[in-house]
Design a protein around this nucleic acid. Sequence first.
DNA 1: GCGCTTAAGTGAAACGCTTAACCACTGAGG
DNA 2: CCTCAGTGGTTAAGCGTTTCACTTAAGCGC
Lengths: 345, 345
Amino acid sequence: MARPNKRTTLREVAEATGLSTAAVSYALRGKHVSKETEERVRKAAAELGYEADPIARALASGRTSTVGVLAGDLQDLWQQQLMAAIGRELLAGDRYALILDAGGDPERELVLAKQLRDQRVDGLLVSPVDPSAEGWAAIAEGVPVVSIGDALSRARTAGEVLFDNRAGIDAVLDYLRGLGHRQITVLTPTGPSTPDRPADVYVREAADRLGIDAQVLPCPQELGEATAVARRVLTNTPDGRRPAGALPPPAAVFCFSDSIAYGVYAAAAEAGLTVGRDLSVVGFDDHPVSRVLTPPLTTVDWGLGEIAKEAARLAVAAIEGRRVRRKRILCAPRLSERGSAVAPR
Amino acid sequence: MARPNKRTTLREVAEATGLSTAAVSYALRGKHVSKETEERVRKAAAELGYEADPIARALASGRTSTVGVLAGDLQDLWQQQLMAAIGRELLAGDRYALILDAGGDPERELVLAKQLRDQRVDGLLVSPVDPSAEGWAAIAEGVPVVSIGDALSRARTAGEVLFDNRAGIDAVLDYLRGLGHRQITVLTPTGPSTPDRPADVYVREAADRLGIDAQVLPCPQELGEATAVARRVLTNTPDGRRPAGALPPPAAVFCFSDSIAYGVYAAAAEAGLTVGRDLSVVGFDDHPVSRVLTPPLTTVDWGLGEIAKEAARLAVAAIEGRRVRRKRILCAPRLSERGSAVAPR
DNA sequence: GCGCTTAAGTGAAACGCTTAACCACTGAGG
DNA sequence: CCTCAGTGGTTAAGCGTTTCACTTAAGCGC
């Protein structure tokens, strides 16, 4: 009724071929019928321009050949990259990726996840805002969930693709130490800092072990806000201009995401500091843009493509009911050494 | 059957309240029933944890309160921003945005659009790869389509949000001319260059009018490839190193997208050219990153937020069957003058 | 020519909701 | 007193597939 231009239905194909709808249904899916009728049905279907209605099919079968992908916050540059990569990966495997954005809101995240589950997505990939939320358990019961970046502590997931943050932090701090830095400012993202994300703890541990004096500060991901924070950090003043006699700016800043690092670049330029000479900056994502900055950002590459691939693989395996050896993939960091970190002056 | 953990159904609520399923259905949507029963039904539904099944509802009603958003190529930084903005905008209006990525493939684009239509999205927003494809007509018949960036020349759409490219080009060339540039290299994106995208033509027209010598070159959007092209452009050599005695590099480069401009920044740094001194660069999107480059990129701001807002508004209006005054929104360019364009030396 | 298996189809019941059509009742207007 | 127009609800017919359970006919060894 809402849709006046009516599609051809299975029944019409059945009538055209003189078969039952059941036979046509089977035939079109290549099951249970003779080669001969299958051919006849296919031909009729093609002539009538028949295409199965995915909604009706979903209702009857409970399946959709569709995968939901839920971004915690699509504003985040890195998640944008991730979503694009996952979408591509799934499409290559002939499944549609429906991407939703929770906008950083943990409640909305669960609402959307439910929505997706109710829409019978066959699987759900999520880069969660709040990985420790209770709600995940109920969702994971209804559909195989693969989480990326953080484990869903309260739910039985079908898989997890995690980053070896500890190793990444070690690598960066070790690298900076090797360059001669003993004092390092670390900018970690704000947000629901759950016990599942003990980045600060790792940093302190690694710093202690390496004999580094680490100053850990929270910093928003959003570029404008990150720039503002970076301004303060680099100048010890709110307005970004460094008065004579102020404390010297930090010689090395380790940013927990590339977008935070971009903020530091911007603030450094304002403050008259040259990154890669006066100031060492290290990022943590390897966003494509990082490569074209001046100087190119030294950062940690987690292999976005592989992350997407692994996540898709885990999801597909779960959907197809296959068992998988390791449900928990731990991505190893690779330091992309470019020009933004140097020895202290 | 595929879903063993069964949800509570409408029928169960009906039985619990002693009403018919129809009454419950009406009640939950606040129609046609007494306040009293409505209350009773709501309570029972809440107790039983009933939530309507969107698939069944879609099949019966043909509606979903869902909007499809189809990105031509999610690899593109600007489209990533656009999708995020649109998703947010729609969510604010209580509709779910299902984002799909065509990956730059015009055929896939149509397949996905059909898929979305068949899934009964109430509306479809699209930033098309190939706006002149025949296929759009059939899709636009089944669902209101709003296109962004390019008009779908073959289809009756519900609205269009376009950019006044001519004005943008004029503004940039005029600006560069005002700085003293008479020779300008213009990098336009490669891709299906349909007659609907006569950017090259506009450029030549404007250049002629302004007495500018414009050299127009195609350039991919992808950062790595853009950098490679920029390298050649800035050095007139394939390897990016400028031999002594080569032609001088262009003094001004106008990039048809910010990501191309990023490539130019990278190539400039490699070639030892300082953007904002030796070389003027202008972009065309105002991506958030552009603000934090060194120097910040002078670019054309089209008002991403408003684009998203207008597109959503048009779609929602069409969905609700409202007539709208202007179905074609033309976004005006605003030059964001930052530091990357200066007078020629 | 008899049971027995298997292949090819059929019929009809789901799937869970919406909605047109109808019905019984109440009170008001004539 | 009879009709007419609401209310508040019910019945039942879809929506377009899938899939279970069942029939029918053919194939086969003996």
